[in-house]
């Protein structure tokens, strides 16, 4: 064996990549070549030294940067699916009944200023009341969630100049229509049977969810093509039925429809 070839064999031996026959051949060569024996020892030592390889120091403030990024893209769990929301909605419904009874009691008695207003709000759907009853913002919650909540709250819609014709929840009755009416139609829609695990984390602050009370669908929009591809991949991995539909709409704008609410 030539020394040139010996080098490759020595290296391969360090990586456990030699056949028995090659190992025998190598050993025969080493037995008669002191140079290659010395090389073998040094390469072996070199490999061992990787265990104590010096590390480079990460840039200053690295971990802080990572954590800031994490807080920025804190996972957006659809509002309606959060247990806190459901619990609060129940509480709010109770409160609405109480206010209603209280208001009705007041009406029976002498007129008091303001009682009419109280009654009016109890007349509205319990969604709008539950929105009122939500607790003060958790400072860590993302802007996206606040935006969703604002969209839910009648006060928010009324003061928000961008709210379109669909922005008046009183007119819509109890269904949770929070879709921005002015948003352009997506050109590509991915329909999945259920939200794949890990998909919610992919959504950005810009994406809002609308829930249809009629068929129980959740529609997430707008999404980028990359997000859509990734969610489709997750769905496929998890065995969730997913289908794509192209339609007339804004180029590059996508939406996600989740059938099971």
């Amino acid at each position: 064996m030539e020394c040139e070839r010996c080098l490759e064999q020595l290296s391969a031996r360090l990586d456990g990549d030699l056949t028995d026959r090659e190992t025998q051949e190598l050993e025969r060569h080493l037995a008669q070549c002191p140079d290659c024996r010395a090389l073998a020892d040094q390469l072996k030592q070199l490999q061992t030294d990787f265990a104590q390889l010096a590390e480079e120091e990460a840039p200053p403030g690295f971990a802080q940067g990572v954590m800031e990024q994490i807080r920025r893209e804190k996972r957006v769990i659809p509002l309606f699916r959060r247990p806190q929301f459901k619990a609060l909605a129940g509480l709010a419904a109770c409160a609405a009944i109480c206010i209603g009874i209280y208001g009705a009691g007041l009406l029976d008695g002498p007129e008091t200023p303001g009682s009419g207003a109280v009654l009016q709000s109890s007349d509205q759907s319990d969604t709008s009341i539950s929105a009122y009853a939500l607790p003060p913002e958790n400072t860590e919650e993302s802007r996206g969630e606040i935006a969703q909540r604002d969209a839910l709250s009648p006060a928010g819609s009324a003061s928000d100049s961008t709210a379109g014709p669909a922005g008046d929840p009183a007119a819509d009755g109890p269904s949770l229509q929070i879709q921005a009416a002015a948003a352009p139609a997506p050109s590509l829609v991915l329909t999945v049977d259920a939200m794949p695990a890990g998909a919610a984390e992919l959504l950005s602050d810009e994406t809002t969810v609308s829930h249809s009370a009629q068929d129980g669908r959740d529609t997430y929009a707008p999404l980028t093509r990359e997000q859509l591809d990734e969610i489709e991949r997750l769905a496929q991995e998890q065995g969730i039925t997913a289908s794509r539909t192209s339609q007339e709409g804004a180029e590059g704008l996508c939406a996600l429809v989740v059938l099971a609410g």
Binding site: D49, F50, Q52, L53, A54, E55, E56, E57
Partner: peptide, 23 residues
């Protein structure tokens, strides 16, 4: 671009630092 950088190698053995320089 990182060779000339006067970065500081973290605490390691002389061999570990030499290997890092070699890499």
């Amino acid at each position: 671009d990182w060779e000339q950088d006067p970065h500081r190698k973290l605490e390691a053995s002389e061999r570990g630092r030499a290997l890092a320089r070699g890499l």
